[in-house]
Simulated assay, not measured.
Amino acid sequence: MRLKGKTALVVGCATGIGRAVAEAFIEEGAIVCLADRGQQEVLSGILKSAPEGSFCLHCDVRSESDVKTAIERAIGGLGRLDILVNNAGVGTSMIPFQTQTWEEWDRVMETNLRSVAYAMHHALPHMLDRQYGRIINTASQLAHKPAPWYAAYCASKAAIVAMSVSVAHEVAEHGVTVNCVCPGPTDTPAWRASDPKWNDWKIAQLPIKRIGTPREIAGAYVYLASDEAGYMVGQSLSPNGGDVAW
């Protein structure tokens, strides 16, 4: 029960890694607010085993007003916000860079990058006022080892890492930590929707020769959310089967 009594907002948690993180937080005793876009029935199902006081809400992370409202409702409903997980994101199909449209580029950046900036921007005043907070942003191993045909996605995830480190250095002395998790290939709906040829190519590069499970990734979030991780500042934890070794 490493998170017993802690409060957490998990953004982007209806499926995949986000859902595994929400479930792990609940098992560790956290009182949670779960936010996703139009997935209230799914989120309500996750909450069946959650501590009293947990709830869910709708949030379109591409809208700053939605994100701001989600932060405010989480703080109001939970009484305070100890932990913020920014996990919402989208991928792309295999696209040669020279044929990449700027509409697609903007969609990826708005969802993957700007949403994280929105959430940190609106959560930090509360955390700094309390002199305590844990912010965990989902990046990707592709932030450290970019792959061909996914330039927009790689760029968005690398930017999350850089932004997280910058903000971490601003706020660490005030009791707030900011860190990233950079998952490798994981058995999620997004992975299963990817091009099978690319998936096979990626698995062949992994020393472990298999993809991870969402549950295997979620442990990194539990650690970063816990008091045990108080000395982790601007770090990237990389559960990725050995593809990136730092």
Rank of each mutant, 00 (worst) to 15 (best):
A8H: 01
L9Q: 11
V10P: 01
V11H: 01
V11F: 01
G12R: 08
C13D: 07
A14L: 07
T15E: 13
T15H: 14
T15Q: 14
I17P: 02
G18K: 08
R19H: 04
R19D: 05
R19F: 00
A20R: 04
A22L: 05
A22P: 03
A22R: 05
E23P: 00
E23W: 01
E23Y: 01
F25V: 04
G29R: 07
G29Q: 09
G29L: 07
G29N: 05
A30Q: 04
A30R: 09
I31G: 02
V32Q: 09
V32N: 03
C33E: 08
L34N: 10
A35Y: 09
A35S: 14
A35C: 10
A35T: 12
D36G: 04
R37A: 13
R37S: 12
Q39V: 05
Q39H: 13
Q40C: 00
E41R: 15
E41L: 09
V42I: 15
L43I: 05
S44P: 00
S44H: 11
G45E: 15
G45S: 14
I46F: 03
L47A: 07
L47M: 10
K48M: 10
S49H: 13
A50E: 06
A50L: 02
P51F: 06
E52T: 13
E52K: 13
E52N: 12
G53K: 07
G53Y: 08
S54L: 02
S54I: 05
F55M: 12
F55I: 11
F55G: 11
C56G: 10
C56D: 15
H58Y: 12
C59P: 01
D60W: 06
D60F: 04
V61M: 04
S63C: 09
S63A: 09
E64F: 10
E64M: 11
D66H: 12
D66Q: 12
V67C: 06
V67K: 08
